[in-house]
């Protein structure tokens, strides 16, 4: 099994930041709101939000109530509620997560966003995009793309310092 190297977080942040600046400059995004997905996505979003200097406060989504594996995984005891301080109706929304894998988290996040309003556009930013998609979902801005075995997982810890490491499970359950 090959073990790809994860690029330094700071470098990935730079890339995502530059790509978003370009999207803003070229008019692909206008006056966007940024929303992070709890918890890794919120940490990444907090850093990007500060660097981009977006005027609207950062939104935070907790998708626990929208997950499709509630039957098998149960309910997380402490649920930090979602906070969307600004009306998302008709706005461009930059949705931020740490890792894009199966796509189920993003599906849940989009479902929740639509319960708050109808965004004009949702633009997905992830630090890491790996193979293993189970839904037709793609990110617009990606820090690093990786091909990993199903046994491998990217663990992101934070908020400061924000770190990422590759974990290999010995025995896939």
């Amino acid at each position: 099994m090959n073990t790809p190297n994860l690029l330094p977080i700071e470098k990935l942040m730079d890339q995502c930041h530059d790509a978003l600046r370009t999207a803003l400059a070229e008019g692909q995004l206008s006056q966007p709101l940024m929303v992070g997905i709890h918890s890794g996505g919120v940490w990444v979003a907090e850093a990007l939000h500060a660097r981009l200097g977006l005027p609207d406060p950062l939104g935070k989504l907790n998708i626990t109530f929208y997950r499709d594996d509630f039957d098998t995984l149960g309910l997380h005891p402490q649920v930090t509620p979602s906070q969307l301080p600004v009306d998302i109706d008709g706005r461009d929304v930059i949705l931020v997560d740490d890792v894009l894998y199966t796509g189920r988290t993003i599906r849940a996040a989009m479902n929740e966003l639509f319960d708050y309003g109808r965004p004009a556009r949702i633009w997905l930013v992830v630090l890491f995009e790996r193979d293993g998609r189970e839904l037709p979902i793609a990110a617009q801005t990606v820090g690093q793309r990786l091909d990993l075995s199903p046994r491998q997982q990217i663990h992101v810890a934070g908020p400061s310092p924000l770190t990422a490491r590759l974990v290999t499970r010995e025995d896939p359950a």
Binding site: F65, L75, Q78, V79, S82, N111, D115, Y116
Partner: peptide
């Protein structure tokens, strides 16, 4: 645990669409 979980659900009642698909 029930009280902590309730805290998360309280926010649902303050939204425009007061519903989650759980």
């Amino acid at each position: 645990r029930i009280l902590d979980t309730a805290e998360g659900f309280m926010s649902v009642s303050n939204r425009e669409i007061k519903k989650v698909p759980l």
